[in-house]
Design a protein around this nucleic acid. Structure first.
Length: 448
RNA sequence: GUGGGCGUAGCUCAAUGGUAGAGCACCAGGUUGUGGCCCUGGCGGUUGCCGGUUCAAGUCCGGUCGCUCACCCCA
């Protein structure tokens, strides 16, 4: 019988399977990037005293409708909303902050020590068309400071953490953009001024912006159409319109950043896509190589969020960073990951009887906490050693008829090619000793 | 949702309308029990799918699906 090709088989079953649109597999080759990023995020959290929180992937859709804002794209067209058998309207969570705030209220974390410093690194979902750095399922790492006071020190610290994250990952050419979008007192005033300004130029606006003029005037600043862009040159500056408290707050944030010697760019047209932000908003992007994936971290202050969820007014500030985008930028910038040297020993056999003995030897090594790999299913020693080479194992143990007869094992240094026979009962100790000598485990330190 | 580009081996890509190829990767050999380098061989495709034009289609035309980039917006 002729074996069937994959294509023939899939033709019979009528379908070839692949990931749904916008979903992607992270294959073993990319794992070092993910491991590294997760590690750095966890270490940063540890140093800055942030505790991890895990929230469900599924939340009530209303949570985001209330917090992100009915008119935002996330709510209007990007949520994976569906009805459960029980009739609940739920969604795959599109972002993390609202979920963390929900948990804070639900579990009365406001009654614990304040502020609560929390972090997460979890998958998020947006139903949109994929492109560079944009997936329907993607991971975000977020840091949030909830409760306590609205001291600008927290704004500065959150921003610092993301800057440190990028630095530690050795990402170059980052650009921190920062702005303040005011509060309940001053934002409505600014909004009205914007509307007045744009209304006089309504005929020059693109069709999208005509809609924005009514619904969400701040978004007018985001438009990339040429005609709207020209209008932006004369647009009123938010920073001039801030009330004294907001202005003072923003000034202090900038002073703190200066103190930390973090370079930033004031961008008075930076607005965020979610309605719950107030005062400080920021975003860090990459210039040049890797820039096509868009902003990496972004965030800001969201003092009104808890209130939107039915809680008390609770000061909070935070941000999130796209993990998939970090991976993409690291690849684009050709950032190498310091790999750990292999702690493994490779076991090879020569002959059927030896194969059986090797099976046992491998298990004994593993029981002694020594990583062992093998290709015992292969017949030739040549093929086995080739596999050892690919594995990057520093030493190999070889067992054949002769060694069994002598009650010994060949221990071969795969770097130098030198080998000797040692008695079987001493092999574990000998392997341990050699691995200790050989392997200086390289772990890139978090600060250096 | 809208627009552009692209679909040939696991990967990267060739093939004036005329027999589908290369490099890499993978597997096996290069004598008796030893990896990397080298040499030889092998596996692997109904050229995304459906239809049309033609003596003849990977190539031309139509449709369709998928991927990708961009817009909107965002991580």
């Amino acid at each position: 019988m002729i074996p069937k090709t994959r294509k023939e088989k899939s033709k019979e079953s009528g379908k070839t399977f692949q990931t749904p649109k916008g979903m992607h597999d992270v294959l073993p080759g990319d794992q070092p990037y993910w491991d590294r990023i997760e590690r750095v995020v966890r270490d940063l959290a540890e140093f800055y005293n942030f505790a991890r929180i895990r929230t469900p992937i599924l939340e009530f859709a209303e949570l985001f409708q209330r917090t992100a804002g009915e008119e935002t794209d996330i709510v209007r067209k990007e949520m994976y909303v569906f009805k459960t058998k029980g009739g609940d309207v739920v969604t795959l969570r599109p972002e993390g902050t609202a979920a963390v705030a929900r948990a804070y209220l639900e579990h009365s974390l406001g009654r614990m020590s304040q502020p609560q410093r929390l972090f997460y690194i979890e998958p998020m979902f947006r139903y949109e068309n994929p492109q560079a750095g944009r997936y329907r399922q993607h991971s975000q790492a977020g840091f949030e400071v909830l409760g306590g006071s609205n001291d600008p020190i927290y704004d500065a610290q959150i921003i610092t953490m993301f800057q440190r994250l990028l630095e530690t990952l050795r990402i170059k050419n980052t650009n921190l953009k920062i702005n303040s979008i005011g509060c309940r007192v001053c934002r409505p005033l600014y909004r009205r001024q914007l509307q007045t300004y744009y209304k006089t130029h309504e005929k020059d606006l693109c069709s999208d912006c005509v809609g924005r003029l009514k619904q969400n005037p701040l978004r007018l600043l985001d438009c990339k159409e040429d005609s709207c862009g020209r209008l932006k040159e004369r647009v009123p500056n938010v920073l001039d319109k801030l009330c004294s408290t907001c202005s003072e707050h923003f000034k202090t944030v900038l002073e703190y950043l200066d103190e930390l010697q973090l370079p930033y760019t004031l961008d008075n047209q930076l607005v965020r896509g979610l309605d719950y932000y107030n005062r400080t908003v920021f975003e860090i992007s990459v210039e040049g190589k890797g820039s096509e994936v868009g902003a990496l971290p972004g965030g800001g202050r969201y003092d009104y969020l808890m209130e939107l969820l039915g809680g008390h007014l609770t000061p909070a500030v935070g941000g999130a960073c796209g993990v998939d985008r970090l991976v993409a930028v690291m690849k684009a910038q050709e950032i190498k990951i310091g790999e750990r040297l292999s702690q493994r020993v490779f076991v090879a056999h020569a002959g059927e009887l030896a194969k059986k003995k090797c099976l046992k030897l491998v298990e004994e090594l593993r029981k002694a906490n020594i990583g062992a790999s093998e290709a015992l299913a292969r017949e030739s020693l040549k093929a086995q050693l080739k596999a050892a080479d690919r594995d990057g194992a520093p030493i190999a143990l070889i067992l054949g008829q002769k060694e069994i007869y002598e009650d010994g094992v060949i221990i071969r240094d795969l770097r130098s090619g030198l080998q000797e026979t040692v008695p079987l009962h001493r092999i574990i100790d000998e392997v341990r000793k050699r691995l200790r000598d050989k392997n200086v485990v390289e772990v890139t330190p978090i600060h250096d």
